[in-house]
Design a protein around this nucleic acid. Structure first.
Lengths: 323, 323
DNA sequence: GACAGTGATACAAACGATTGCACTAAAGTA
DNA sequence: TACTTTAGTGCAATCGTTTGTATCACTGTC
């Protein structure tokens, strides 16, 4: 049915090995032969069978990309960038969604293992122990989690949080609430530590909260009770929910309270007021993670952590403190 | 390195073919032998090599999922559902993003072809001619486009548009603008036809427009000039942009103008005012498309079109006409 | 003129599974 | 008793590539 290397070989009167080398080791074959073979291959519409190639070389030229929830607006830009970068390197990407379930995550890794050269683990829900065990079977790159023994891509939310707090203090806010995320979150911990170390400002911590709009909505009363006029939320979804919750209680953003989110997701750019936020370099993270992964596929893994810069983007949800 | 069927065979003192059958043809092997083999396989941590299996069976147990833009909020729920459904059927999913480029789309299909049993084409940018040509090489299911000769999953935007217009007329609007999408869009055409057939209401068509917030933003002046008090936008992004454009010109939504979007994407649910919209059953589309695809993989393709219901969701961007 | 060196190609053995066929032994049939 | 049947298993070819080694015809060297 499909055209194989054998068909090309017969059509061009050479041995299959010559055809193979025409593609993968050009310097070993006569330039004339090569062009002829390539032309005939093109003609016949030959496409190498990657499964067969994988069998001999041990390289599938596939990678797995595992995220907790594709529908979470934080991930698509990362997936998109990772996929594009992989394509550039002639790799294909399996995308899998664990639905936030660690067991599913582990199963997925297990079945994917034989089919990929490496796995990109984004915001894993697995314990570090489990990750280290699975590490034996397939190379990993972990995004958004510190995991020793393997390459890691992190985003500098600590710096982002400092910038955010500075932005708020510059606007005259003296009492700031940090609406934290889930208790296990590395990101949340980083933000807390950074904020706690700031001078000239009162920081109160409100949380933990689910990392969703509902989480933000529910946090509104606590924020009002805290007396804070500036808020840094765990992420944009929480920030949007919070703004809604504040509005329900008669508080206007940014008139009464200033709110800053994290992630710079699309909904934040489109909400009203447009969200001031800490932009996460998700696309860069995707690209870099892919490169690190492919690197660690054919050489020893550099178990280094890569820290990416974040950036404060000021829009409409922050304003001067009136007091 | 990895444990193969051969290792299992040796460890259990049977031939590899018996091990193979213990997995794939249980009725051909003695129950006792089978349980023993399975236990040993489990013990050794044996995982079948899918590349090798693909080579002999011709079934990769992979499918390709091609979308124009992963970062477009319309797609993630569809991808998520498709991926989950595939997993249920023991299939893995390659996700690829064409960046709206038909050439990339074609290349992707070409390289993916040898690695998948079928391809899910979502809102393709390729011409029908090209799709029909590629159809020779791999089974397709097309979502959001009518394409003859292959299974198709469509969403009933025509009915949605009718409901939307009825909703507006019920609120007293007598002059309605339809802000259309790209000229090649099947969805846009469906909406136009449905709206044109309505009674008791003036419908003006404004477009074509790019299917983005910018498209909506730019359409604001035309909408105002048209004198329409109700608007049906090509999609939620356009609707959000339009609302912003109207606001810039002093028009309030829903006070002065009512706006309805299409898709029910997350940003629409979070924007202010919350968008009244036609919900598209994207998750169902993903699930059904996968099932159709797997079905057409091992039997003749049923080239039928499946039409999915849409639903009008009334939120805050529509209100009574004041006149 | 014999021989090493080299460039180009052919040969054949893998890779890890599946599967049609052959074989054996025990059970069923006449 | 001689036969067919059947259940259970082994054998070996096969899928489409890659790749180490063998072959062969030149060219250049001494």
């Amino acid at each position: 049915m499909a055209v194989t290397i054998r068909d090309v070989a017969e059509a061009s009167g050479v041995h299959v090995s010559t055809v193979s080398r025409a593609f993968s080791a050009p310097h070993l074959v006569n330039p004339e032969t090569r062009t002829r073979v390539l032309a005939i291959a093109e003609d016949l519409g030959y496409r190498p069978n990657r499964a067969a190639r994988a069998l001999t070389t041990g390289r599938t030229h596939n990678i797995g990309l595992i995220v907790a929830d594709i529908a979470n607006p934080f991930f698509p830009p990362l997936i998109k960038a990772a996929q594009a970068q992989a394509r550039l390197r002639d790799y294909h990407v399996f995308v899998a969604d664990t639905d936030e379930d660690p067991q599913v995550e582990e199963d997925l890794i297990q079945t994917l293992t034989k089919q990929v050269d490496g796995v990109l683990l984004c915001s894993p829900r697995l314990t570090n122990r489990t990750i280290e065990r699975l590490r034996e079977e397939v190379p990993f790159v972990v995004v958004n989690r510190r995991a020793k023994g393997m390459p890691t891509v992190l985003m500098d939310v600590g710096r982002g949080a400092r910038q955010a707090v500075e932005h708020l203090t510059a606007l005259g806010h003296r009492r700031i609430a940090l609406v934290t995320g889930p208790s296990g979150s590395w990101t949340s911990k980083e933000m807390q530590e950074a904020a706690a170390a700031m001078n000239d400002v009162d920081v109160v911590f409100l949380g933990p909260n689910p990392p969703t709009e509902l989480g933000g909505l529910a946090a509104a009363t606590d924020v009002i009770a805290s007396g804070a006029t500036g808020v840094l939320a765990y992420n944009d979804l929480v920030a949007i929910g919070l703004i809604e919750g504040l509005a329900e209680r008669g508080k206007n953003v940014p008139g009464d309270v200033s709110v800053i989110g994290v992630d710079d997701i699309v909904p934040g750019r489109l909400s009203r007021p447009k969200l001031t936020t800490i932009a996460m370099p998700t696309a860069a993270a995707g690209r870099i993670a892919v490169d690190l992964l492919l690197q660690s596929v054919d050489s020893a893994a550099t178990a280094a952590a890569t820290m990416l810069e974040t950036a404060l983007i000021v829009r409409e949800s922050t304003g001067k403190a009136h007091r």
